[in-house]
Design a protein around this nucleic acid. Sequence first.
RNA 1: GCCCGGAUGGCGGAACUGGUAUACGCGCACGACUUAAAAUCGUGUCUCGCAAGGGAUGUGGGUUCGAUUCCCACUCUGGGCACCA
Length: 820
Amino acid sequence: MKEYDHKKIEAKWQKEWEKKEVFNASDFSKKPKFYGLIEFPYPSGEGLHVGHIRSNTAMDIIARKRRMEGFNVLYPIGWDAFGLPTENYAIKTGISPEKVTKINTDIFRRQLKSIGFSFDWSREVNTTDPKYYKWTQWLFLQFLKHDLAYKAKININWCPKDKIGLANEEVVGGCCERCGTPVEKREKEQWMLRITKYADKLDKDLDDVDFLEKIKLQQRNWIGRSEGAEIGFKIKSSNSNVEDEIKVFTTRPDTIFGATYVVLAPENELVSNLKSKISNWEEVEKYIVKAKAKAEIERSADEKDPSTGSGQAKTGVQLKGLIAINPANNEEIPVFIADYVIATYGTGAVMAVPAHDERDFAFANKYNLPVLVVVSGGDGNSAYVGDGKMINSGKFDGQDSELVKKEITKFVGGKWVTKYKLRDWVFSRQRYWGEPIPVVHCDKCGVVPLSEKDLPLKLPKIAKYEPTNSGESPLAGISKWVNTKCPKCFGKAKRETDTMPNWAGSSWYFLRYCDPKNSKKFADIKKLKYWMQVDWYNGGMEHTTLHLLYSRFWNKFLFDIGLVPFSEAYKKRTSHGMILAKNGEKMSKSKGNVINPDDIVKTYGADTLRMYEMFMGPFDQAIAWGEDNIIGVRRFIERVWKIQNKVVSKTVFDTNMARTVLTTEEYKKFETLLHKTVKKVSDDIESMRFNTAISSMMILVNFMDKIEQIRKSDFEMFLKVLSPFAPHVTEEIWAELGDKKILSTEAWPKADPNKMKETEITIAIQINGKVRAETFITSDMSEADIIEYVKRLEDVDKWIAGKEIRKIIYVPLKLVSIVV
RNA sequence: GCCCGGAUGGCGGAACUGGUAUACGCGCACGACUUAAAAUCGUGUCUCGCAAGGGAUGUGGGUUCGAUUCCCACUCUGGGCACCA
């Protein structure tokens, strides 16, 4: 018998598939199309991660199944290659990011090919290729044209020692990741994309897509749509009669009679506007400076209150000299600033109702502010946030709190409004390794976009990749590149030196895959019409609120201006669990716990690695890497390899083979199991339960192991369902059995329901909820027959003899439960 | 602090709508083959008990003829976070 030589077999079929272009998608084919997508990898210096293999194999199995089901499948791959690690590596080593990217993508490509993924390599894209980013720049100009891109002053993280802006990721515990210096906030003008304009659509259209519920929930929470009231609180001050007003936003206007103070965010403009009327300005200013210095994450992460050991330690300062008027009851109440109120949400000010809001309650306790209950139902010891009958609320007393919200808003002269948590997207970076933003600044004409014929605006070659001391990108130092002519008036102008974030290229790559080589357009609309939407997109949960939302936003915008055919980019979205290192930590180069898949491919083979990663646990759950179980999958594949020697053609097949008692009846049992397995594998792939699909195939193989002969057609049926998991070895056996055509293009088998029926079924018998016996029944017995039969069984009789039967429950084909 | 998951043998895990808990795999033990070992194959493997039977799905309650599954409270653990008023 031929040895199972995975190295030879895998290399052979990878070459064969490539030569025959088995996996190339064909535009406009008459077959139904299927577009399966995985998040394209960032080609890091660490090489392919075992986590990539897990998620890519999952979609590969689906893509391969769809192909066998007769679909024209697009399963593309590319490189999301702009980004910080490559740039930081360039700063450290002086090697150009371009070169580093080339080296890394070469490694990734080789590794991915060695696993046997059925990617259409002819459509490979790379976000750092000028032919690609020409269109990223062009798309940015469309945003600019439609007033969805604008400049605004934004606080950024600033390292005063390195004199550069830092990404959130580079801030560790409030300090610069590299030098440990405490990070400051600095105002900088940034390009913004107006994603908030799409907040409503991005939220509502989730109703119509097939995303996992937890993904929808997370996006909804992120967008944070909420309806509430905007209400003005008049301000009185001791040294002025001019009327100012604090606008607050609240979802609980029904509690307004219980508002005993008002709180502004420290950054709220009104605070400085009212400076002249605030008697303790020095104290207030100190607090503002302190609050601004705190990282947002620190402001949001609560510390335990040392006095109570629980709850929230809130800080704030009263704005002395100011008095607000509660419009519901005309009570005079104090005004505070506190950093638990944030400037960017709502109106940057809240009315505080300590009796019915936990944060207000904690704050009121700390500063000894009155707590006035206006909705009954609480116990008085904590904030009651539920609904109930209203009290202490004037003419609203006795009404249901949840029903009067709009009416009470009207009563105090407020407006009913919708607010979103979502903020506009900061779209510029002061970095080198990103798409240059294609505009110039002209003294006469202002911001002038480049024209399409000037795209791509290529990154110039430079010697040093560090940002400049002024916080500008290194591009600012290339005067030859910066100084240019205004495309409008041809006068002197300067180029924008900011680049785009790494999210830019990934916001539309799924569109480029439909038409990756087009030099006239970002993608041809006819091809987009054929391939879009993405039928199934699998990715990590960590991309739910940024990449996934951003790309939905881009697609919606492009739909609105008529450039893409669907408003939603993705029909279906699922997510995978992360693979962690043995100890449960994340794998990373710095921890030295990264697993190199090359070694496993060499020792066990790609088929074993693929199957092992699918078998190790539930696909949607995180799992710690361990190699103890790999051997089990390898043994399984070797067993399948050996079984090919028992395969005989139909005419020679003998159901009465002496050694194995494969009588007609026994064969029927096998046939039933085979068809059940085919059904289970088919179903499990659709619900991404790859681990149980594999275990059911193992059960079938264990059965086949014990039989002397296998009918060829039966074995082939099994090979087909195994092939998406272990494509190389199945392809080889398929050829060994004398089949000329490639297995990957064969038709997916259908399980025959008639052959899955079992004639004899084991049922359990419970007495008072405990299993006491089991017995066989045949499928033609009626319920009454079964119950009578069961009652007469010896094992049952000893439990029920002489007792009164109170109840008998029959669960079809499962059990009989007798209560005595 | 908030939100979303998870907790089942020695280990990874299975049990799909409440219906025989521990499938499948690893490991381990014993046996066969072998001069021997590896590989392979076979048998066994939650726990207490001689048995009848009892106890086990993180902990404590509840609903039910019946709960890994549903409800309440809690512990531990993974992930996310923008105190969202």
